[in-house]
Structures are given as structure tokens and as C-alpha cells.
Design a binder for these strands. Structure first.
Lengths: 320, 320
DNA sequence: CAAGCATTTGAGCATATGCTCATGTAGTGA
DNA sequence: TCACTACATGAGCATATGCTCAAATGCTTG
């Protein structure tokens, strides 16, 4: 009953954590039991299990769609003419909804990447997509292509933490085309200089041909991600708010009808502008009270024809 | 903070279980918390969570390969010339290893079914594969084909519980070709009558062309599955044991060198005989001390060129 | 309508889990 | 070699989980 000898062979501490988590979740054993079996203290067993969870080694997947979520999905699809809609069960009003929609977004990505026909998947940036990347399983998708819609270079030259495409490409082993660009350039002139570069032109062309596009959605209230990440000054934000700015996708700002502005920071937006396209799928993944208006605008303006959100947000979007 | 209103919309009790499990595993909340949020008693919350687990709604997946398992896999591949080898971490000597190898088998099937090129996957029957079917996620595999290697009709005419192909086809939405046959016919003559039927001939032909084959392995000791399921009499079993029978795949009995017998019950075996084939993959999924000899024989005889097992079994197979 | 059966419920309790803190230990630099 | 830092360990305790049992509820059948 004692596996201590075998455990010795485990080189890394992560291995130990993985083994403990395996015994706990797959084997359904108590941590006490595991501790005895591995010849360690109970405390250590518990630390290993929670470490495995914290490191994201263990993934939970719910194989059951809730009736109430299905209903919201159907209503949203019908009322807004969406091609795709997924509603994650609420995690409770007090909890960050990112985790829930990340899980669901990952499962949709997995489904689409499972396609036998080669697809081009375009990806935005942001917290939500980044979290979804963590939830993706390992896959072998050599026949698909991943392409970035925008860069993730901050005004100070550092790369933002919320890089998505590299993480996803790493997980699913697909050829990938990142975009070495700022989200919003310093000036229209700088933007044009970037766009004049041949490799960037090629990547942008590929991104515009994407069959499937996943993007996050930024709100334009005082907590706007564009402000927080330093792409917009306080003054510019105020200006755009007064001009009726509601939301932003890949740095491109739009109003409550989902129409892009043709002035202000949009003249410097460096990434690909997500546009309504026939036959293709453009999915917005976002949740939270602050995002409701931006999501509603993006949907009604046809910037996206797919939506992944959570229950409370879905309800908010539906109630006028 | 109270979602009770929303919960009312949940029609089925399974929905409630799913929601509780979602909050517990994905949301990481305590059952106390969940109970308050859903407006139910803590007991009920705990019952719902364990129900969701029992119903197999929630799946655990470990995204980390243990060094010691990788090592066993490498050694087995090298020493026995295997194309594919996966070793699941042990669940402890006292525990049924089926769950562990089922999880790993499912993930290998998922990987293979994720292929963009159409494949034909042939499937045996048995407890292990049946358990693997439960662990498979939902997929859309219209471009692949699933085909059964043998039937699952008992001598008394009832279908055995361990039907695999229908379950898997249901999960992955692939065209499937079951085999309406007994595992072992009552007589060679009956077997030939079955085989004369045109639709059965077609299915068997397809099964023989399979790119990938997954089978369980039966031992031929006194606990032989063929005996337990009533396909073999006690006397026949004894006969075959004395003739040197070690194991069985799809009802076809072989000796310790992995050579099929050409007498006895094999003259009545109704399913497709798994054979060494160039370029194709035939994977045996089995674990446990009783299966070691059968596995070793099947591998060394080249009946299979792939193996999915657990750590203790892998060690046993390797030690001479 | 009522008795009988089966299933569901929550209270109470035993067990399992996770957190904190005091102590230990290994690695680092003077 | 000796402090010093940083991280690892296990004891003890607070909390969370899961099991048992008796009461309640609903459903079937005479």
C-alpha cells in the first residue's frame, strides 16, 4: 500500500503535485489516504493538491448544459440574429465572472479547432481571452492557423501581460502569426509606418480572412481598459465619452449603435478592425455589468455575430 | 446575492446538480456558500455536488505528465517496439485501476479523433473501453467512422451491458457500424451463418481496414471474462488453460507468445480477429495484476502495437 | 380516502480539509 | 564560518464536507 519508492522517481515538485491531484480528483481518495500512500504528511498532501489546482494542472469540465442558460442562448440568438451564443452559468454576483466565461470560451475554441477543415482563427487580446487560453487542453492543430488581430506592445515598449496568441498556439500546436504592433500607436503617422511594413501587411491580410474571430470587449467608462493599460490619456477618454463612446474592440472605439468613430484615437488604432463579414464568425467574449452596454452595441451594430457571456450579463443585455 | 429566482427556471434535478457542481468546482466556492446562493440547505448542496460527480457530469483532467510515467512509456516503447504507449499514474494498489486507464484512454481517443484526416476507428468491448466512453467529451466527428470489432450478444440473446460503440458514437457524433453478433457463437456453423450475411461482411471488412483499433484484453485464468459472461463453459476454459491459453482479445484466445489458437472456442469466435498490421495502430487498454501475462503476450506476439495501462502493470510487464 | 411504500429532507455528528503560526532548514553573501 | 533570508514543514485549530438516522413528504394502490 506504500508507493513511496515510486515517488522517489518523481523529479520535480510539480510531479508530486500532479500525482496528489490525480489521486484526489480522479481516484477520489482523501488527502489522508494519499499522504499515507505517498509517505508524506497530510499537510503536504493538501498543499500538493491545492498547488496542482493553483498551477492549473487540473481542469474541471461540466458536461451538462443548463436549461436556463440554453434558454438565454436561444433568446439572444433569436432577438439579435447571432450565429453563436454561449451563456455560462453564473458564479454568483460577488465573483469575477472571467473564470466562467473563460471555461466556456475555451470549450468553443476547442470545438472549432476540432474541425477537420483548416480554419484561420483570429484572436484579440485581453484578460478574458488570456484566461480562456489557460483552460484550453493540449491539441494538435497543425492544419489550422492562428493570427493576431492586434499587437500587445504598450506605449512604453514593454509587451503587455495579456498576450493570447502565443499561449494558445503553445497549447494547440498551430502555426501562428503574432502582430508586433502597439494596440494604439502614438500617432496616425506612426501607425501608417507600421502598416507599410510588408510582414505586417501580410499578417493583417490573413487576419481579415479569418473564418473565426475571438475578441474581448472593453468598456469606455472611467474604468476603460484602454485607459488602464495607458493607450489612452484621461483627456482623450473624456473626449470620446462625450462623443458617445460606449465600447472598444481591439482598440477600435465604437458608439452605442456599434458604429466605429472615424476620428480621435481610432486614427491611431493599429490593429485590424473587426467588421461584419458574411459567413464568418466573430465572437465577443465578455461579462460583467460594466460591459453590458458595450456588448449590446457591438451586437446590434453587427461588429460581432457571436457572444459568450454569463447569465447575469445575458439577462442585462436582454432587458431594455 | 440570492439566485433563487433563477434556480426556479431549472427544470430538471440534474440541472440543479450541474449548477451546484459548476459553482463548487469551477467557481471554487464552499457548499455552504452555494447553499445560500441557491436558497437551499447545505445538505442539499452537498448532495447535488456529489450527484453531479456520480452522474459523470463533471470531468477531471490532469494536464501534466508525470516523469515516472513518461519513463515507463519510453522503456515499454523501446523494449517492445510499441507505436503508442501511455501509462496512467497508479491509483494505489488497493484501488480498481479501470478509472485511471479509462481517463487516459479517453484522452488518446480524443486526440486521434481530433485528426483532420478522416479515420476509421475500430472498437472492442469490455469494461475498460466502456469506462473510457464515459470519460470522453462531446465532439463532432462526422468525418470519422467508428466500427465494432465484435458483437455484444450473450448466449441467452440479451445484449451485454458493456456496449462501447453506441456510447462513443453518441458522445462524438460519428457514423458508426455496430456488429449484431455474439462474441462467441454457439457453434462454428452458426458463426459461418452470421458471417454469410452481407451487412455483417461489409462491417467486418470496414473493421479490418481500421486505421486505429482499441481493444480490451481478457485474462484466461479462473476469473476469465469469457467465463463470467457465459461465452465459455468451465470445461472449455480448463481445456484452453491446459493448451496454454493466456489471454483473449475480442473473444479470440491466444497463448503466451501471442499466437491465436486454431482450435477450440476460436472456431466459434464471431468477431474480427485483431492482427498485426503495417502502419496501423492497435491499442490494448488494460491494467491489473491478472492481465499482465495476457498483455505481455499480446505485445510480444504483435497482436497490438499500442498499450495503455497503469504504473504497477507497466512495471510488472517490464520485469521478467 | 387511507394505508403502505419509497424517496427526500435536515439535524447531528464524525471525518476531512485548509489556514495560521511557530519552528526548521537550505541556500546566499559577507 | 556565520548570520540572514526565504522558503518548507508539521502542530493545532477552525471550518467544510459527508454520513446516518429519524421525520416528513409524496406517490401508489386497495
Amino acid at each position: 500500500m506504500n508507493l513511496a519508492r515510486q515517488t522517489d522517481a518523481d523529479a520535480t515538485p510539480l510531479d508530486e503535485a500532479a500525482r496528489a491531484a490525480w489521486l484526489y480528483y480522479v481516484g477520489g481518495k482523501t488527502q489522508d489516504h494519499i499522504a499515507k500512500e505517498l509517505g508524506i504528511s497530510r499537510q503536504r498532501a493538501q498543499r500538493l493538491v491545492s498547488k496542482a489546482v493553483a498551477e492549473g494542472m487540473i481542469h474541471f469540465r461540466l458536461e451538462h448544459r443548463l436549461a436556463s442558460c440554453l434558454e438565454l442562448e436561444a433568446t439572444l440568438k433569436r432577438k439579435h440574429g447571432l450565429e453563436l451564443c454561449r451563456v455560462a452559468p453564473s458564479l454568483g454576483e460577488g465573483t469575477d465572472p472571467t473564470l466562467g466565461i473563460a471555461t466556456v470560451t475555451a470549450s468553443e475554441m476547442e470545438r472549432l479547432l476540432g474541425s477537420p477543415d483548416p480554419i484561420v482563427m483570429a484572436l484579440g487580446t485581453g484578460r478574458t481571452l488570456r484566461a480562456a487560453a489557460e483552460e484550453l487542453p493540449r491539441m494538435h492543430c497543425q492544419h489550422h492557423k492562428l493570427v493576431s488581430l492586434n499587437g500587445n506592445i504598450s506605449p512604453d515598449g514593454t509587451a503587455s501581460f495579456y498576450d493570447v496568441i502565443m499561449r494558445i498556439a503553445d497549447k494547440v500546436r498551430a502555426p501562428h502569426y503574432p502582430m508586433p504592433l502597439p494596440v494604439v500607436a502614438a500617432s496616425p503617422k506612426e501607425r501608417d509606418m507600421f502598416h507599410a511594413l510588408e510582414p505586417i501587411q501580410r499578417t493583417m491580410k490573413l487576419a481579415r480572412q479569418a473564418n473565426v474571430t475571438f475578441v474581448g470587449v472593453g468598456q469606455m467608462d472611467d474604468s476603460a481598459p484602454l485607459l488602464q493599460d495607458g493607450f489612452l490619456s484621461q483627456a482623450e477618454l473624456l473626449n470620446m465619452q462625450q462623443a458617445g463612446a460606449i465600447g472598444e474592440i481591439c482598440g477600435w472605439i465604437f458608439d452605442e449603435s456599434g458604429r466605429y468613430f472615424n476620428f480621435g484615437p481610432n486614427l491611431r488604432a493599429a490593429g485590424v478592425r473587426v467588421e461584419p463579414k458574411q459567413g464568418n464568425l466573430a465572437v465577443a467574449a465578455a461579462a460583467g455589468a460594466t460591459k453590458v452596454n458595450a456588448l449590446r452595441a457591438a451586437i446590434s451594430g453587427g461588429i460581432v455575430n457571436g457572444l459568450i457571456t454569463d447569465e447575469p450579463t445575458a439577462r442585462h443585455i436582454l432587458e431594455k
